[in-house]
Design a protein around this nucleic acid. Sequence first.
DNA 1: TAGAGGACTAACATCTGCGT
DNA 2: ACGCAGATGTTAGTCCTCTA
Length: 326
Amino acid sequence: MAQDQTKKEALFNEVKGSLFEYLVAKEIARLGNEELQFQQTLDRNYLNVLSQQDRMVRQFYPEMLPFLNQVSKNTVARMVEYLGKLPKNPKVMGKFSNSAIHDEIHEADLLVNHDDVLLPVSLKLNKKHAYVNTKSGGIKSFFLQYFPFLDSSIQEKFNQLVDLEFSRMAFELHALHDLDYSGNFGLWVQKGFSELPGELDQDSRNILKSYYARIAQEMHTILSNAQKQNPEAFAASLAPLMGFGKSEILQVICFHEFPSGESPDIDLHTYSDLKKYLSDAKIGEFNSIASVELDIGPWSLHIRVKPMNKFTTTAIKINCSIKVRK
DNA sequence: TAGAGGACTAACATCTGCGT
DNA sequence: ACGCAGATGTTAGTCCTCTA
């Protein structure tokens, strides 16, 4: 029973975002009497994926469909209210859509015509009260990618630290369980220990967490120095971390409470809402956890060190998520 | 095919306001 | 004052995709 629920949730997570995007686009088209054109913009492969997802949901989680339909309608209504009129010619930017446009506006899920200009829309369907995930980048290229004004040696040294701390963590874990550390987790796995962070015993977990924290600490130092040395460039670098890789993006977040019947809260943000706060972003004090928090006006940005999945490789990522205080 | 990168959110702790 | 429930905040998790 409990397992059943877990599976359902996994399914929910997997398909809801994708179906949501499609349904929002379709609703815009429907209201504008351009459903036929809309259907023609859809890629064949994309349609296949969609219909598979749709079938899966109907079979295993039928109560999800009315929910998705409802929040899609709510979201479109809110967008129309915000924009002052119905946007035209919606296009979903699913994985299989036209890649030429795709490159230009990779962050957007939806492209619409508004006042005769193309408006990229980033759509999120998010649980109420939860942080909104914006970016999730690999640790070995994080500074290069998002803080390009920094010297590349900063990334290099950081990567060395990551590798070093990984070895230390691995060594400590093996020592704790009286295992010889041969340089990899082969023996660990052989002895039946888990490679998933969530399945570790308390002591092992603490070793793992302090490893993340040590990396987060270095990240904190790098970010603080970056802000001190080049405040303007630092401020400019924050926007992409918060989902505004392009300034034209309209960010639409639908906060839901599924499966409770509560109506969703829909937030809309633009780069210009954010811009005025960027220059006085405050980096929170390091707290010996795996994340660093930044206050940017009413926004809170969490930059967090986390494993990809298994912790037994050096593959770590940096996850960014935001929340707006109201 | 393994590792690097990416997109999602849940679970638990801690506060807070209310009825007694 | 006190204990509870719901709200809010903090920390932690999984699965997917692309590519060398």
